[in-house]
């Protein structure tokens, strides 16, 4: 969550954003390792490459603002303020996990940080986010709700139903589309007609497209959208152009049939959100490599400790299998 108010300067804030992005990157690297070593049950959809979107968006939010997340949701969860150790524990199906091991990678929720949950139905949380915004408006709480989804989810009809209602009722909801170009294993040129933001504009919803690899740009744009939503000026739509470094999920290794290695290399080399921010901060002489390396080292230590905690944590007691079905 935003440390903006707790820190004394802009540079400290952007170093924190760097740390958050680095944490997500490192977390996902470890998830990939766990999966490859067959230590992790199920599967995982890695967020690597898209860090600037989650961090830029969540840094514009308050702790009690809501987010809804997706199957590719580890980044959202960490960026909104969840702890690394309990996230790993959830991914490994352990009792100490955020959902006591009952949700796993695709259903992580942390209401304490405003995360209403990842969703394994593509586009499945669009109604929930819009309803959270309606609830905030009815309660007069001043909260906003953010709905994360990918370019693949733009093909779901639910989006158009809820954008219609959000526009009609001026709800404080921001639809954040992470356009990483791929709907699972298919390029968007095969799945999407027309422009993405034109869809929102058709409902009279304020919509913008930004470079989703630039965390500063994402946050600044998002801050404007959040402020207008809080002022009661209604919903907004933010398309972030981004890229996922890995496949659709951890097992999607051989993917040259749908995208080239050259394309992947280009994004990693020339559009990496961590590199981009580091270069900017160094060029502006706001920091130096040693400071950033120290952040990376500290993050690596934290993530390693979190992973070890989860590996050593106990599984749930079998008696829990039929608990929490009903309140």
């Amino acid at each position: 969550m935003s440390k903006k108010k707790e820190t004394s300067s802009d540079v400290e804030h952007w170093l924190y954003a760097y740390e958050q992005m680095a944490k997500i990157r490192e977390f996902e690297e470890k998830v990939n390792e766990l999966y490859m070593k067959a230590l992790m049950p199920g599967l995982a959809h890695l967020y690597s490459g898209q860090e600037a979107v989650a961090v830029g968006v969540c840094e514009a939010l308050h702790l009690d603002d809501y987010i809804t997340s997706t199957h590719r949701g580890h980044g959202h969860c960490l960026a909104k303020g969840a702890a690394v150790d309990r996230m790993f524990a959830e991914l490994l199906g352990k009792e100490a996990g955020f959902c006591k091991g009952k949700g796993g990678s695709m259903h992580i929720a942390d209401p304490d940080s405003g995360n209403l949950g990842a969703n394994a139905i593509v586009g499945g949380s669009m109604g929930i986010a819009t309803g959270a915004a309606l609830s905030a408006k009815m309660r007069g709480s001043g909260q906003v709700a953010v709905c994360f989804f990918g370019d693949g989810a733009v093909a779901q009809g639910l989006l158009y139903e809820v954008m219609n209602m959000a526009a009609l009722w001026k709800l404080p909801v921001i639809y954040v589309c992470e356009n990483n170009n791929y709907s699972e294993y298919t390029h968007r040129s095969e799945t999407l007609a027309g422009e993405i933001i034109a869809r929102a504009q058709a409902f009279g919803i304020h919509a913008e497209t930004v470079d989703g690899q630039d965390v500063q740009l994402v946050q600044e744009t998002m801050q404007k959208l959040v402020d207008r939503a809080r002022r009661g000026e209604g919903p907004a739509f933010l398309e972030c152009l981004t890229y996922r470094y890995y496949g659709h999920h951890v097992g999607d290794i051989n993917r040259t049939y749908y995208r080239s290695k050259e394309e992947e290399h280009d994004w990693r080399e020339n559009h990496d959100p961590l590199k981009l921010l580091a270069e900017k901060l160094i060029a502006q002489k706001l920091t130096d490599r040693a400071v950033l390396d120290k952040i990376l080292a500290d993050v690596a230590t934290e993530v390693e400790a979190g992973m070890q905690f989860a590996i050593n944590a106990p599984f749930p007691n079998p008696s829990e299998v039929n608990e929490d079905v009903y309140v």
């Binding site: 109604g127 819009t130 959270a132 609830s135």
Partner: peptide, 18 residues
């Protein structure tokens, strides 16, 4: 509006938030 999945989902989100 005539949007069953939409208003049902909106209801679920409102229920989850108080």
């Amino acid at each position: 509006p005539i949007s069953e999945p939409g208003f049902t989902g909106v209801g679920v989100g409102a229920a989850m938030t108080g």
